[in-house]
Every structure is written in structure tokens, then in C-alpha cells.
Design a protein around this nucleic acid. Structure first.
Length: 607
DNA sequence: GTAGGGTTAG
């Protein structure tokens, strides 16, 4: 009997079993040898040799070896998907590891279609996808903005009960984010427990909001993140945060992000430093921006570019031009983006001749073909300086068709310099372009209103309504105690508006005492003066200033970011408030900064 | 037994 014989031989040598055991050890050690060889591969030549060894040692039947062969080949930087595929195809029954690896390899090479084909094949063979399968597939969908496919995979994830895996969830958040489906992205995020979220979770959800330009949401999320267990200062998240601060003008938060970086990282790379620099400059903190710039050990052309446009934005056109010559001296070849900054510098300073010189230099010395953006700067430069006729000729002689932005800028200049005749021509050009931009229609209608052409006003309005266009609401953002508050013109029903109406009333009493009279010339509504004055008093900038005066300590600066250009009345009003309440008020509009101090503005009323 | 998610600027 086999049983008894085993029993009898329990303490005796068992030659047969020992032989098997030895063989098994032998096999395992050969496997290990191959794996370590594979790990040492540095190129395809090495890999082919390892492959040969695997064949020679008869290890091709070892799933562990072939798996690692496919892995090394498919995922190394020097690898080859073709070769990986030839190995993969010889595997009679590939397991999920091998499928996952091949799928990942195809996604890495941006062959998402091939990855999806393999996934289907996997299902057909009855191999169950696991938590490793979906992250790469979802990444593929994210890269290709394939929402439809992404949603299907989401369904499969759910069906396979993998919706609790943090990697899968992060991939879903990222996929929905890249496809612009912020609601879905948030919904996956919200379904996760605080404890399950990793830094990548936060990074993905913050990036998703950033791509939708939901800046204040980005910052709220970042605030939340800093209270988390997984939180550690890390460059990529902080760059997104810094760019949110930049776009919101959230200087306080930008500053604390800077603090995190200093505290937690030994050295900052040039990307982070450039975003920091850009943040300070675009938040109107010029001195800080300059300090960073001067201390930077490594600067590249992006750094110079940020510095040049930052200086221009703050009204230091001449300084911007000095930095530009430094950049050229250091041997950085200026590109077309830098030249946009240079021309903007000239435009904000009213340096018409210099601007034209630079424009020519760009073409002749640096062989840069001017883009429509450069022409846009020139049109702006000339238009603002009152040379509207010259700007018009320039547009007509450009090598390309003018776009809406150019005509819009010229129309604005015509409005400022009250050249209604040319304005009318420009208006027609704009109408011909049949643009669907609401701001164009608003500008047109304002233009006609100023010229008292009420029929045209009515027509423009009607046209706008028929096209279903809604006027872009003007807003002003203000940052108080690390929170951004948004004020929309005429909207005092917002929860944070409490006390603002009373403050506006008090401010107006003070202003009147100082001789302020509302300037309704920029209110182009067909309503009576009383209504105009009332609307004027509820412009978003005024609401934001009132809120700022209530909620910040005496003497501290008030910083506001607007989406549109401010009206003449708001400009005068802010100048006066800065002296009455002894506050410096920094307002960023869509083009530049206004630093209000002691009743004056840094733009010298030229904007 | 092997592996996976978020990478940024002017």
C-alpha cells in the first residue's frame, strides 16, 4: 500500500522526492537568474540575450519569466511594443498580468485603440480584468479625451466591484477631468473617504478644476488638502495652486504656498520659481517678484518672458524693455511670446515709435513672422495713443485677415477717442465677422449708444437676443483671510454681501463730501439718470471695495481682480476712496494693474 | 511572486 510504505519510510531517505525537490529548487533559481538578468537590461540587445537564455534554459513555460520578459520589453523606455507583442502572441493562455502589461504598453505608446482591442480580447477569453487593468485604460481615454469609452470603462469598473480601489478612482477623476466632465470628476472624488484619498487624488481633482478655470474651487480644495494626512508639499500640486492664485489674484494664498515650498523642499526648480515669479507679478506684488527674479540661480526664457510681461502689466514698460535687453545679452533667443510682452510694454507706456521699432526688429533681426497677436499689440498701441486711423490702415494692410479681437480693440479706441465715424466702419466689420461673442455686441451697442444711434442700439440688442447671447457679467474678486469672494455687478443678494449696501451708502456720503459726482457716460442703457446712477453704484468693483473696507484691517491694502476693463466712474471712485480711507487699492483688470494710492492711479489715467 | 494613479511655467 502506498500509504503504509510512506509511513514506513518516513525517516528514511526518499530518493525520488528529493530529486523532484532539487529540480524544483533548480527551476526556481534559474527563474531568479533570468529575472535579475531582465532587470539589468539596458537596451534591446540585452533584452534579446535574456530572451535567448530563457529559451535555452527551457523557461519559456515559466509564466513568471515570460511575464517579466513582456513587462521589461513593453514598459522600458528603450523597449519595443512590436517585440513585446511577438512574445505575447506566443503565450497560449496569457494571464491578467500579461494582458495588463500589454495594455499599459500600448497606452504608453498612445495606441489606445490597440489597448482597447486587447481589453476586448481579454474579456472574450474569460479573463477577469482587475484593479491593474483600468488605470491605464482610463489614462488612455483621458489622453484622447474619449469620454464615451471612459464612461463605459467606468461601468465595467463598477460591475467588477473595483470602484473602491484608490488607483482606479484616481484614474476616473483624472479621466473625467481631462474630458471636461467636472461634475463626474467631483462625484468620484466625493464618494471617496478622506482616509482613502492619496496625494494623487487631490492632485487629479485640483488639476480637473484648474482645467475648467475654476480657480477658487482649486484653492478651496488645496486648503482642504493641507489638513490631510497625505499632504506634503510637492511641486506639481503647488504649481497648479500657484497658477490658481495667479488667475484669482489671490496673493495671500500664493504667499503661503510659497511658504510651504520653502519649508518643505530644499531647492525649487526653475518651473516652480517661474510660476512663483509670475504669481507675484500678476498679483501686483512687484517688489516680491523682482526679488525672486534677482535671486534665481537658473533662469530660462520662460523666466524672462514672465518677468517682461509682468513688468509691462504693472505699468513698468521701460523696466520691461531693460530686462528684455538683458535677456538678449544673456543669449536667450527671444521668441514670439516674449515679443508680445515687449509690445505690450510699449503699449502700456504709450511708446508708439519704440513699439514699431521692436516690431521691425522682431521680423528682421530675429526672423519671427508676426502673428495676429503682435498686430493686435500694435493696433492697441496705436489706438490707445489716439492714432486710430493709422491702426485702421495697419489692419487693412496686414498679411492675414483681422480677427474679432483686433477690431474689438480698435472699436474700443474709437470709443475712447470719440471717433464715431471710424467706429461705425469698424462696427460694420465686426458685424460682418458675425461673431458670437457677447462682449462684441455689448461694445457695439455701447458705441452706438454713445453716438445716440438708438435704432442701431435696438438692432444690435435684438440680434444678440436672437442669437441667444447673454452679456458677460462683470465681476470683481477680492481675497479676504485666504478666501476669495466674487462680486457681480448689481447682485447684492449674495450671502457675503451683508453689510455691503450700508457701506456703499457711507462711502457715497464721504465721496459726495469730497466733491464726487457719478459719471454715467459709460452706462449705456436706455434708462433714466436715476436708474443709471443706481446701477453705477452697484458695479462689482464698488461692492468688492465696500466688502474689503469692512473685512480687512485699517491701512492694509485692498486687492481686487476683475474680468473686464473698469469703467471711468469706477476708476475715479476708486482713486478717491484710496485717499479718503487711506488705503492702497490694487485692481487688476483684464489687461493690466492699477495701483491706487492717495487719490492717484499708477496708470496715470492712460488705460 | 511581478505592475497601477496625479507632472506643472511665459
Amino acid at each position: 500500500m502506498a500509504g503504509t510504505s510512506v509511513h514506513h519510510n518516513l525517516f528514511l531517505p526518499q530518493p525520488q522526492e528529493d530529486h523532484h525537490h532539487k529540480k524544483a529548487i533548480d527551476f526556481a533559481s534559474r527563474e531568479q537568474e533570468c529575472i535579475s538578468l531582465l532587470k539589468r537590461c539596458k537596451n534591446m540587445e540585452d533584452l534579446k540575450q535574456s530572451h535567448c537564455l530563457i529559451l535555452k534554459l527551457g523557461l519559456i513555460c515559466s509564466s513568471f519569466c515570460t511575464s517579466n520578459l513582456v513587462l521589461t520589453c513593453a514598459l522600458s523606455n528603450w523597449g519595443s511594443m512590436d517585440y513585446a507583442n511577438s512574445v505575447f502572441e506566443q503565450i497560449e493562455y496569457p494571464n491578467s498580468f500579461e494582458f495588463n502589461t500589454m495594455i499599459r504598453g500600448h497606452v504608453k505608446d498612445m495606441n489606445v485603440d490597440k489597448a482597447i482591442v486587447l481589453y476586448d480580447q481579454m474579456l472574450e477569453m474569460g479573463i477577469k480584468p482587475d484593479k491593474f487593468t483600468y488605470p491605464s485604460l482610463l489614462k488612455g481615454c483621458a489622453c484622447l479625451r474619449g469620454l464615451k469609452e471612459g464612461m463605459q470603462f467606468h461601468g465595467h469598473v463598477y460591475k467588477n466591484g473595483l470602484d473602491n480601489d484608490v488607483f482606479v478612482q484616481n484614474s476616473l477623476i483624472n479621466m473625467y477631468g481631462k474630458c471636461g466632465e467636472i461634475t463626474q470628476s467631483c462625484s468620484v472624488f466625493k464618494q471617496m473617504d478622506d482616509f482613502d484619498r492619496s496625494l494623487a487624488t487631490w492632485s487629479a481633482v485640483i488639476a480637473a478644476h484648474a482645467s475648467k478655470e475654476m480657480w477658487s474651487e482649486c484653492l478651496s480644495l488645496f486648503q482642504e488638502l493641507t489638513n490631510q494626512r497625505c499632504w506634503k508639499a510637492e511641486e506639481s500640486v503647488l504649481v497648479s495652486v500657484l497658477s490658481s492664485c495667479t488667475n484669482l489674484g489671490a496673493l495671500d494664498l500664493g504667499r503661503s504656498a510659497h511658504g510651504f515650498l520653502i519649508k518643505n523642499l530644499s531647492g525649487l526648480n526653475v518651473i516652480v520659481e517661474t510660476s512663483l515669479l509670475d504669481m507675484y507679478l500678476k498679483c501686483g506684488s512687484l517688489v516680491k517678484g523682482l526679488t525672486i527674479f534677482e535671486r534665481m540661480k537658473v533662469k530660462n526664457q520662460w523666466t524672462y518672458s514672465a518677468m517682461i510681461s509682468g513688468l509691462a502689466l504693472n505699468g513698468y514698460g521701460n523696466e520691461a524693455l531693460r530686462v528684455f535687453s538683458e535677456m538678449v545679452e544673456k543669449g536667450f533667443e527671444p521668441d514670439e511670446v516674449v515679443y508680445v510682452g515687449v509690445l505690450t510694454a510699449c503699449s502700456h507706456e504709450g511708446l508708439v515709435e519704440k513699439g514699431l521699432d521692436f516690431f521691425n526688429k522682431m521680423k528682421v533681426d530675429h526672423k519671427i513672422e508676426p502673428t495676429i497677436q503682435h498686430y493686435g499689440c500694435l493696433v492697441d498701441l496705436m489706438g490707445k495713443a489716439g492714432k486710430v486711423k493709422e491702426a485702421f490702415d495697419l489692419i487693412n494692410n496686414m498679411p492675414m485677415e483681422a480677427n474679432e479681437v483686433l477690431w474689438y480693440s480698435l472699436l474700443n479706441a474709437c470709443k475712447i477717442h470719440q471717433n464715431f465715424e471710424l467706429g461705425d466702419k469698424v462696427a460694420k466689420k465686426l458685424l460682418n465677422l458675425n461673431s458670437l461673442s457677447p462682449s462684441t455686441y455689448v461694445m457695439l451697442s455701447n458705441m452706438y449708444a454713445k453716438a445716440q444711434k438708438w435704432e442701431h442700439v435696438a438692432l444690435t440688442r435684438k440680434d444678440m437676443t436672437q442669437k441667444g447671447l447673454i452679456k458677460t457679467p462683470g465681476y470683481s474678486c477680492i481675497q479676504v483671510k485666504r478666501k476669495a469672494y466674487k462680486f457681480v455687478s448689481n447682485d447684492i443678494m449674495l450671502s457675503h454681501c451683508e453689510g455691503v449696501s450700508d457701506m456703499i451708502y457711507q462711502m457715497e456720503l464721504q465721496l459726495k463730501f469730497e466733491g464726487y459726482f457719478p459719471d454715467t457716460s459709460d452706462v449705456f442703457l436706455d434708462v433714466d439718470d436715476k436708474e443709471k446712477i443706481e446701477r453705477l453704484s452697484r458695479h462689482s468693483q464698488k461692492l468688492a471695495i465696500a466688502f474689503g473696507l469692512i473685512n480687512t484691517s485699517e491701512g492694509s491694502p485692498i486687492r481686487i481682480v476683475r474680468n473686464l476693463r473698469m469703467c471711468k466712474d469706477c476708476h475715479t471712485y476708486t482713486k478717491m476712496i484710496s485717499s479718503i480711507y487711506e488705503r492702497s487699492i490694487v485692481v487688476r483688470d483684464r489687461n493690466r494693474f492699477h495701483h491706487f494710492e492717495d487719490g492717484e492711479c499708477s496708470c496715470k489715467d492712460y488705460w
